[in-house]
Design a protein around this nucleic acid. Structure first.
Length: 431
RNA sequence: UCCCGAGUAGCUCAGCUGGUAGAGCAGGCGGCUGUUAACCGCCGGGUCGGGGGUUCGAGUCCCUCCUCGGGAGCCA
């Protein structure tokens, strides 16, 4: 396919005359010489203009360029050690396509509030471009991994009927059927699909109406949820560590430049290879107590405890077999200790917390039904889910990986809201 | 919902025990032939988040409301 010349391809074109299209990031003038940095999404190009060599008209045009003006610029590509990219364009002609006056985001300090109000424009900055590219790589790596491993992609519904605690769910009117809710998870649906296809995953947006205000929460986020027939909890953890290692490795391999732009120390990412550390909930509580924590057996791990625990390890750690009281009804009870279930969380290092929550699923009809009743969930809403145990039940396991938490960890961002193009949070629905 | 913190120039902030508004950057003009958030000189720029109160006098103290940030809970 014929395409415009991209900045990315210019180093190979030294000596040629080219025309590139893009947006002006900065201009600098030093008397009779000027520099314009152009961005086109593939890279950054320093363009040079000399007053003595350019005509008066071109000099004036370039002199008056403002931040984010879109232009078509022509000139010859030449190697120069003084240029950041090693090559630069000697301007011979420049057409302004779209002027840009008073661009709000100057190359200076801004607060997060201001930046998120201008998110649609902030996306053009170097850091945001780098983050978007890493996110793209992670998403593509996820799809490639599951495709390679023989999984089928099954898209789960986003509009769902009530399935119990509708608290924490966004609701909307749904014709004559009453209320519909935006999905919090696709898991129940991929369990059904696993009985049809064996190895499946869904990957899409999910919604939580919780009034969360932390660096790890969004009201709309993306989640990848694999579900595998005949995998038990140990198989599940092996899949997780292989999967996460692939995604991290792939990003290191293909997005070095972006991670460098983000000033990410990649040494901790280099260590992300199987096997991950494993610690039971029982041992985790003992360890936290030994470290001075005041956690008691039976309590869920809080954010601080997760961070403290993860800091004991040099790569991701699985915490497995939690008390059933703090976990969901569908998790399979542990035959060796009925107080606990066969689940695991995966905690990322460096304080990024829980990037995965997974479990073996309860496959016994009667036990699942009794768990639904214990939790006082509406039985009728789970009829179809119970059917999966009535018609050829099967051992199966799966997990959910939070995309933004994973990308935030890989990028080293202080808050996950920065790794999604248009974050949705309690106080942000715009732009 | 709870606990902290913050709202002052376009942006980021300073402004002491109350005395009548300041800096850097951005913008405008001028200078500079190798800049990397360039640099140097000059210039314009404000309902101090809203409302109420105390006071001779409030950006500053008190009350209240609004907005935003961080954390908790919930979880990915």
């Amino acid at each position: 396919m014929q395409d415009h010349i991209r900045i990315r391809d210019l180093p190979a074109r030294a000596g040629e005359s080219v025309t590139v299209r893009g947006w002006v990031m900065t201009t600098r003038f030093s008397g009779k010489i000027g520099f314009v940095v152009l961005r086109d999404g593939t890279g950054y190009l320093q363009m040079v203009i000399s007053k003595s060599e350019a005509g008066q008209a071109l000099w004036e045009t370039v002199r008056q360029l403002t931040q984010e003006t879109s232009v078509a610029a022509s000139g010859s590509i030449r190697a120069d050690a003084r240029s950041p990219a090693g090559v630069e364009l000697a301007l011979a002609d420049l057409q302004v396509i779209g002027p840009s006056a008073d661009f709000p985001i100057t190359p200076k300090e801004h607060g997060t509030s201001f930046l998120f109000e201008h998110r649609h424009l902030w996306l053009r900055s170097r850091r945001q471009v780098a983050i978007l590219k890493v996110r793209h790589e992670v998403e593509q790596a996820i799809r490639d991994y599951y495709h390679r491993e023989g999984f089928y992609l099954v898209d789960s519904p986003i509009l769902t009927a009530a399935q119990g605690e509708a608290g924490g769910m966004f609701e909307t009117e749904y014709f004559d059927l009453g209320k519909a809710y935006l999905a919090q998870t696709g898991q129940l649906y991929v369990e059904a699909a696993a009985a049809a296809l064996g190895k499946v995953y869904c990957f899409g947006p999910t919604f939580r109406a919780e009034k969360s205000k932390t660096r790890r929460h969004l009201t709309e986020f993306w989640m990848c949820e694999p579900e595998v027939a005949w995998y038990d909890s140990n198989d599940n953890m092996r899949l997780q560590e292989d999967f996460v290692s692939y995604v991290v490795g792939r990003t290191l391999e293909r997005r070095r430049e972006e991670l460098k732009e983000l000033e990410r120390d990649t040494s901790t990412l280099e260590r992300v290879t199987p096997p991950f550390h494993r610690i039971s909930y029982n041992d985790a509580v003992a360890k936290l107590k030994a470290l001075g924590g005041n956690i008691e057996w039976g309590q869920d791990l809080g954010g601080d405890e997760e961070t403290q625990l993860a800091s004991q390890f040099d790569k991701p750690v699985f915490v497995f077999n939690y008390p059933k009281e703090v976990k969901a009804f569908y998790m399979k009870r542990n035959p060796d200790d009925p107080r606990t279930v066969l689940n695991n969380d995966c905690l990322a290092p460096e304080g990024y917390g829980e990037i995965i929550g997974g479990s073996q699923r309860e496959d016994d009809y009667d036990i699942l039904l009794s768990r639904i009743r214990e939790e006082k969930l509406p039985e009728e809403a789970y009829g179809w889910y119970l059917d999966l145990r009535r018609y050829g039940t099967f051992v199966h396991s799966g997990f959910g990986l939070g995309l933004e938490r994973t990308v935030g960890w890989i990028c080293g961002t202080p808050h996950i809201r920065e790794v999604i193009a248009f974050p949705r949070m309690m106080h942000r629905l715009w732009p």
